[in-house]
Each structure stands twice: as structure tokens, then as C-alpha cells.
Design a protein around this nucleic acid. Structure first.
Length: 522
RNA sequence: GGCGACGUAGCCAAGUGGUAAGGCGGAGCUCUGCAAAAGCUCUAUUCCCCAGUUCGAAUCUGGGCGUCGCCUCCA
């Protein structure tokens, strides 16, 4: 089903933190959406909270592309900050090495989660020039000043300070958690440039050797890569204040006409044990570890079943539920895909699908209600047998594929239907109660597959599993032998073979005309 | 102390004025050598509590209780 039949690009509505309303979304110019999403500060391993945020923006990006926009997606890397310097000091390693290691680990996790690569991934240290120019402009225009330990932004010089986060500058003082600093004119002022202490990494500047403060890199890099105003500025809710408030102050102080960004979009935080998952609180499991324990696509599926703006509590129960649900949905997709092609009821079949597609896209248009959209997919999955009978299997499968692709789910092959070949059960023996599994492929000599071999040969293809061809043939041969045993009513042998396959991670599922097998997940 | 969000079945969760989506789990049935999968059916007279507005409220207003977040580095 072509989206254009039922979709109008202007129907997308998005919550805008800047106005605190859900508003119709449109590109500012050229049919191109310029978006900047605050990325990682790689001074520690990424965690699931990062994954939630970046997966959401990934879906937003995919949907904008789907709607026909060109999209320029920028995600920064704040590769210099106090914590990576501190980590370098305690570990004795170079700070660049530490940052690079965490960043590469994070990138691998993003790939496993099917998060698309940003178009630009600028690093703060690569934009020292533009950062310094911006600071210079702020000094010249009276919005910044240099003192003994660095250059600061003069918060009181920007009248709209606090508008994004709904804070009142006078009341911010009362909180008493803002450390007074003898150098600063005002406790609220924040650093644009920090002078280096001995041994710290630094760059030369007109004011003194040092490094950029947090915030300024985003103002400078978004300006350099997207210009102003751009369409969407995103990040986690915890960035609303002070990070995004400060970005606005820096950028808009130099802008004749605000705003810096049309839409400000913030993703809800992920809780773990009902507490915020956070580096500073220390309550998180490294992302790469979690991805080893759980199917990455199931994590994605789980997250998309909660509204992106809501705080969400991650539990083992919830990920198990999502895993099961996703498997069922993909099973329905497989059934639709494998159904015999429809006859000539093409138009009727497409019409049968239209209500599903309409509901699906209506949900996404409504502030990216992915949870509602997924419920439509489940409805479609439940009705799969009916759709097959009415000859709508093919367009239904095509629609499901498109819908899941939008959500970043790859419904690629996950099961292999073996061809039943010539077999000879005498070639199949079991040794050591399933610890050693000797099998013979139809033509080849016997192969030995110790426990764990298949696991070792797993190849991740779009999150699902394909196997090396020889092993696949071998497994098919065993299954063929089992089919023979079943035909001969030797159910004892059939069961032993199934148990043996299971012991090496292969799950056999009988069907009327044969059997399919999958490699057990997890 | 200031600001903000949230509270829907055993669990997760959609739904912002019209009479409770969906998922997981659970129960039963069908199919099946067995197992699994799949299909069908059932699983909240009710949306934290109280008061109010309304013909009508989970949805709006006021009050209360609870949980969480931001105000300091944080996706």
C-alpha cells in the first residue's frame, strides 16, 4: 500500500517543548528537515537510557523521510569534558583513547539497535575554531566576559533566559544549589571557555589556553552545519535545563530573529528500578551487555510501546513480554509472506488493508504515537488468516514490512524451511546423550558439531539469524532424517533428534508438510 | 524551597468530553504421535481518592494522596 494514498504530509503533529503544545509540523524551508540531536558524552559506557532516546529520534527521522522530506540529521559528540579528563587522570590512559573506546562501543550498540547513522557526527574538538568565533562574538556583543578562570556567558544579558524550561531567573537563585564562584559576575553565569589547569588538555585561544565549556559546542556546531533557524532540536528531557536553555541563550543572543530551532523535542527518561538511569547515579548496566542478553529488536519494540515523552521503567518482565510479542508479530508476517499469491482480487485486497494503514499512520501523525501504531500491527497480525483467505496476503505483508521498517524493525528471514532431501537415517547417530552430535549431510562425509558450534556460527542478519551454508545443510539433513523417522512412526528417534538439535540451539517446529527450524534466540 | 511530569486490569500500556485499544501473563477450546506454533473464546460496569462543571468525564476544574524528574554532570 502506497503511503501517498492515505497520507498527507501536513498531518504530522509534534509536541514542541518551546511552546508546550502539540503543533502541526512542517519544514521551514526547501522541504528539508534539519535536525540536531544532542548525542553522547563518551566519558563512560552508554546505557539503555541513551538507547531509548536515540531510537526515538531514529524513528522520528525515518518517519520524516517516509513523508517525503529530505532530512539532515546531526548528532554531536562532546568528546572533551571534565569527566573524561578525570577518567584519564585516574586510569593513566590518554583522554582521547578513553573517549574513543566508549564512543566506538556506543556506535556498535547503535548499529545493533538499527539506529541509522547520522549524516554528520561532529566532535567538539573538531570545531574549536567555530566555537572560539562564537565566544568572540558573544564577548563583543556584551553577552560574555573573560575572568581569571575562563570566559562566562552573562545570563542577565539575555532576557528570555528560562523561557524554554519555564524557569524564573530570580527563583533560580533561591534554590541555593548553585555554587557561588568568586570569579563569576553572577552565580547563574555559565562557562563558555575553561582555562586549563596544569596537565589538562587545552587549545590556544585569545583569552588563554583551555577547552570549551559544555553547551557552546552545540550552539557552534548546529550553526556551522545547519544554519539558523533549523527545524528540530532534540535530546533527553534532562537536557531541557540547563543545557538547552544555555544553548538558546548563546545562539539567540547573536540572532536577529529568534528562535534558534523551530521545534524542541525531548524524549522521556528511562528509569531502572524506578530510578533514573544515569551515569552519575551509577545505576545502569552498560548497553553492550544488555544487548548481549536481549534481542536488540525486542528492546526497540518495547520502547516503542510506550509514549516517547513518558518516563518509562525498564524491567526484565517487560522485555520478556515484548520479545514474545515481537516474535508473534513476525510469525504473522512470515505467514503472510509465504501465503500463495492472490488471484486477481488485487484491488479488493488493497481495500481490505486500507483501514489498517490509515489507523497506523494516523497514530504516527499524532505526536508519533508508536504504541498506538503497534497495536494496529497486532490487529493486522491477528487478522492474518482472514487476510490470507481473502487473497490479501501479499499487500498485507508489504504493508507490514513497510510499517516495521519505519519503526526500525527488520522482518528479515528468521526461519529456514528445509527441503526434504534424500536421506538415510543410518548416517545419523547421537553420541554422549546429545553432547556430541554427529550428522551427515546428504553428500558429504560426516561432520562433527560439538555443543555450541551453531551458536558460534550465528551470524546476525538484521537482528535475526542465518547460518553458514554447510551447517544449514547439515541441520536440514538431520531434520530430513527426523521426518523419515516420523513417517516410520519411530517417534522415539524423532524426539531424540529434536532434543539433540535443541541442545545445540536449533528449535524444530513441525508443520503439516515438513518442519521449520530456527536458532533459539538470546 | 521553586518548576514539571505521571498515577488506567496480575504486569506493560493506548486513549484529553460520548460511554475502556493493544501486548504480556492466565483460563478454556481447536489443531497435533508428542511438543511448539497458530487460530477461536474468556480475562477492568471501570480508569489513585474526594468534590465540582456537564445531558454525558479516565478525559475539564479545585483539593488531597502517591511516584518520579529537573533546579549540579546527565539521553
Amino acid at each position: 500500500m502506497s503511503p501517498s494514498e492515505i497520507q498527507q504530509r501536513g498531518a504530522l503533529r509534534l509536541y514542541n517543548t518551546r511552546t508546550r503544545k502539540v503543533e502541526p509540523f512542517g519544514a521551514l524551508r526547501d522541504d528539508r528537515v534539519r535536525m540536531y540531536v544532542c548525542g553522547l558524552t563518551p566519558s563512560a559506557e552508554g546505557h539503555l537510557g541513551h538507547a531509548r532516546s536515540f531510537m526515538f529520534f531514529d524513528v522520528l527521522r525515518r518517519y520524516l523521510v517516509h513523508l517525503g522530506y529530505g532530512v539532515t540529521f546531526v548528532q554531536n559528540v562532546t568528546d572533551i569534558d571534565d569527566r573524561s579528563i578525570a577518567a584519564a587522570a585516574t586510569s593513566g590512559r590518554d583522554w582521547r583513547e578513553i573517549v574513543e573506546a566508549y564512543f566506538q562501543s556506543f556506535k556498535r550498540s547503535m548499529t545493533r539497535l538499527h539506529v541509522l547513522e547520522p549524516d554528520h557526527e561532529p566532535r567538539a574538538t573538531e570545531y574549536i575554531g567555530p566555537i572560539q568565533s562564537m565566544i568572540e562574538e558573544l564577548i563583543v556583543t556584551g553577552h560574555a566576559y573573560a575572568v581569571a578562570d575562563g570566559v562566562y556567558f552573562r545570563v542577565k544579558s539575555f532576557s528570555r533566559y528560562g523561557a524554554l524550561s519555564g524557569r524564573n531567573v530570580d527563583e533560580l537563585m533561591v534554590g541555593a544549589r548553585i555554587a557561588a564562584d568568586e570569579n563569576k559576575e553572577d552565580p547563574l553565569d555559565f562557562a563558555l571557555w575553561k582555562f586549563a589547569k596544569p596537565g589538562e588538555p587545552s587549545w590556544e585561544s585569545p583569552w588563554g589556553a583551555g577547552r570549551p565549556g559544555w553547551h557552546i559546542e552545540c550552539s557552534a556546531m548546529s550553526r556551522a552545519l545547519l544554519g539558523e533557524p533549523f527545524d528540530i532540536h532534540g535530546g533527553g528531557y534532562d537536557l531541557v535545563f540547563p543545557h538547552h536553555e544555555n544553548e538558546i541563550a548563546q545562539t539567540e543572543s547573536l540572532l536577529p530573529v529568534p528562535p534558534m530551532a523551530n521545534f524542541w523535542v525531548h524524549g522521556g527518561l528511562l528509569l531502572f528500578d524506578n530510578r533514573k538511569m544515569s551515569k552519575s547515579l551509577g545505576n545502569f548496566e552498560p548497553l553492550y551487555e544488555l544487548l548481549d542478553r536481549h534481542e536488540p529488536q525486542a528492546i526497540r519494540f518495547l520502547f516503542l510501546q510506550t509514549g516517547y515523552r513518558k518516563p518509562m521503567n525498564f524491567t526484565e518482565d517487560s522485555i520478556e513480554g515484548a520479545t514474545t510479542g515481537l516474535q508473534r508479530l513476525l510469525a504473522a508476517y512470515d505467514a503472510l509472506r509465504r501465503a500463495p499469491p492472490a488471484g486477481q482480487h488485487d484491488e479488493a485486497a488493497r481495500a481490505a488493508l486500507k483501514p489498517f494503514a490509515a489507523r497506523f499512520y494516523a497514530a504516527l501523525d499524532d505526536d508519533l504515537n508508536t504504541a498506538g501504531a503497534i497495536s494496529v500491527l497486532f490487529d493486522l497480525g491477528s487478522g492474518a488468516s482472514g487476510l490470507i483467505q481473502s487473497g490479501a496476503a501479499s499487500p498485507a505483508a508489504a504493508f507490514l514490512h513497510e510499517a516495521m521498517a519505519l519503526l526500525g524493525i527488520s522482518p528479515s528471514e528468521r526461519s529456514h524451511k528445509p527441503v526434504i532431501v534424500e536421506y538415510d537415517t543410518s548416517l545419523v547417530t547421537l553420541e554422549g546423550a546429545g553432547t556430541m552430535f554427529r550428522i551427515a549431510a546428504p553428500k558429504d562425509a560426516a561432520q562433527h558439531l560439538p555443543v555450541g558450534t551453531l551458536e558460534a556460527l550465528r551470524v546476525d542478519v538484521g537482528g535475526f539469524v542465518a547460518l553458514d551454508g554447510d551447517v544449514k545443510a547439515a541441520v536440514n539433513a538431520v531434520i530430513a532424517a527426523r521426518q523419515r523417522a516420523k513417517l516410520e512412526k519411530d517417534f522415539g528417534l524423532a524426539d531424540r533428534l529434536r532434543i539433540a538439535l535443541k541442545s545445540i540451539g536449533v528449535v524444530v517446529t513441525d508443520e503439516k508438510d515438513g518442519a521449520t527450524w530456527t536458532v533459539a534466540g538470546g
